[in-house]
Amino acid sequence: MLVSLEAKLINRKYLDSVKELVKPHTPQYCYQCAKCTSACTASKVIPEYKPHLIVALTRMGLIKQLLDSGIIWACTECWKCGEYCPQNVAPVEVIIALKNLAVASGYRPPEDLIAMARNVIELGRISPPIEVLSKEFEIYSRESLNLPPLVRPYAHESMRKTLKDLLGGL
């Protein structure tokens, strides 16, 4: 029963993509000690977030279910799991690979991340310079603070094209 259930759910194509993307780390080496989860920043505030389970689902090939849940976007990329993993699985690398796979497969990343990426393409930075408020509600800008104006990055036009190609249809 379980065997047939698994066979139906396993997505080979996704599994092969993740294996390729996380090299030289190998999710298959995970022995489920959960050291990663005990160190994990996201686990501390989101109890259902557990990197050892993300790795377990990944190596079983139950990746579609994982991507559908959207939980991978909670990872803060703090790299603690990577430090503590005795098997050099580095769940953070697995999760970055899963995020890349999700985007390549048409899942939408969080909107703020898309906005940042669009700004990097168009301006070379994640945001244009903004006006900030002090505690006394005074408004400050680069200009009023006498900071030099920002310029576009070197060869911005060609950078824009390359980035657009790499980031796909965001």
Binding site: E77, N100, V103, V120, L123, P153, M159, L163, L167
Partner: peptide, 24 residues
């Protein structure tokens, strides 16, 4: 001033975009 983003925020979307920006 000609240096833009290092690509760090892009790695979740596409790791190569991150690598490209820092290589730049």
């Amino acid at each position: 001033p000609e240096a833009g983003c290092c690509g760090f925020p892009l790695k979740g979307i596409n790791k190569n975009a991150w690598i490209y920006m820092s290589a730049r």
